[in-house]
């Protein structure tokens, strides 16, 4: 209860400062995430693998780092993370077919202006992903969250554990919050 006494003694400014210490940690986290997303041109620069459909390349709990450079087309063999409208979780699967659509006004020197159709499949699945596309026949570039550039095995298990046991998440957040409120730099 020392901190409550300290609050009384030091007044509103002190409380605002302590609350700011706490809020600044969260704010910097959010901004690092958003900044990273902008630099990598993807809404989610880091994802956790939730299924075993890409084994033996990736296992449940692996952390993946994604980028989605606007100046690149996807090629067969790329491992992509995609999210089709209507599905709530992104899926990590490999591109097995690409088709560059040649439409009217096609300029050979700028293939990026053209639509690209993609088909994907999980390395560990028997069939391709058409079933997962929620009625679409092909994936398009706008459905792709990013291409996998690197991974760290198992680190993501922390988030899987926190999703499975929400209490763990609240305990961790609460603990960190309390620490930030009580501590002075």
């Amino acid at each position: 209860m020392d901190s409550i006494k300290a609050f009384k003694r030091l007044g509103v400014r002190y409380m605002l400062l302590q609350a700011l210490n706490f809020a600044a940690v969260i704010a910097s986290g959010l901004m690092i995430w958003k900044g990273l997303g902008l630099v990598c041109n993807t809404e989610s620069p880091i994802v956790v693998v939730l299924s075993g459909s890409m084994e033996p390349a990736f296992y449940r709990g692996d952390l993946l780092f994604l980028t989605n450079p606007a100046s690149e087309q996807y090629v067969t063999g790329d491992i992509t993370v995609y999210k089709v409208p209507g599905a709530d979780i992104p899926i990590v699967h490999r591109v097995i077919e690409t088709h560059d659509v040649v439409s009217e006004g096609y300029v050979a020197a700028s293939p990026l202006g053209q639509k690209q159709l993609l088909l994907t499949k999980g390395d560990n699945n028997n069939a391709n992903d058409i079933e997962l596309y929620q009625g679409l026949d092909w994936l398009e570039k706008r459905h792709i969250v990013g291409k996998v550039r690197g991974f760290m095995p198992y680190i993501g298990y922390v988030t899987i554990a926190m999703n499975d046991f929400p209490q763990l998440k609240y305990a961790l957040l609460g603990g960190l919050g309390l620490l930030a409120l009580v501590q002075r730099e």
């Binding site: 400014r13 605002l16 400062l17 700011l20 809020a23 600044a24 704010a27 995430w33 958003k34």
Partner: peptide, 22 residues
């Protein structure tokens, strides 16, 4: 203290608004 509070809370509000918007 006031300068740091103003700058700090302004940055926190901007971060919050940006994240919410995004």
């Amino acid at each position: 203290t006031d300068v740091k509070l103003a700058l700090g809370w302004a940055s926190v509000l901007i971060a919050g608004a940006t994240a919410l918007y995004g």
